[in-house]
């Protein structure tokens, strides 16, 4: 297995993208929060019609909740608009670069009409990397610490 070339040739679909969870832009932020708790996810995609216009993540939720914001206000007031996205055909390498240079942990996957088809998160990319080192990462000893720090004897 060659990690270098797989990074270029494998697409984001191989990096365990999640099914998109979408809400409409005028949804009260309270119901989006409750939905996230119910399904145990950390981000919703915000759509206008079927087109992606924003993303609301646990970071946005933290800011809102720390400042006692109005939970009945629409989600558009708290979401990040026009999120950086990837296409289904983009490579794993492109996804890592986009995530890294923008400091995001999630990238919505959109089709050519801007409709969300998935959500790629950092955990999916980590899993992809681990998967591509089966011998190296899976065979790590159970404890990271060395058995002994010094050579035995004088």
């Amino acid at each position: 297995m060659n990690l270098g070339s797989d990074l270029h040739t494998e697409t984001v679909l191989q990096a365990s993208p999640l099914q998109p969870v979408c809400v409409q832009i005028d949804t009260p932020v309270r119901s989006a929060l409750e939905r996230l708790q119910e399904i145990g996810r950390s981000a919703v995609l915000v759509c206008e019609g079927d087109r992606l216009v924003g993303i609301f993540t646990e970071r946005d939720a933290l800011r809102l909740l720390a400042s006692d914001g109005d939970l009945n206000a629409p989600i558009r007031e708290f979401m990040a608009s026009n999120p950086v996205t990837v296409r289904q055909t983009d490579s794993v390498e492109t996804a890592i670069s986009k995530m890294s240079s923008n400091g995001y942990r999630r990238l919505p996957i959109v089709d050519d009409r801007g409709r969300p088809t998935g959500l790629l998160d950092a955990s999916g990319l980590i899993h992809w990397l681990v998967d591509h080192f089966p011998s190296a990462v899976y065979n790590l000893p159970p404890v990271a610490k060395p058995a002994m720090h010094q050579r035995e004897g004088p």
């Binding site: 270098g4 390498e93 995530m99």
Partner: peptide, 26 residues
Amino acid sequence: SVRRILNYIAGALGRETPAGQGNDAG
């Protein structure tokens, strides 16, 4: 954080050579 690790890996991406180009820069 997971982000810090991805950043560190991304820092190596520019230096990768696609397979088959016969360059051992990596």
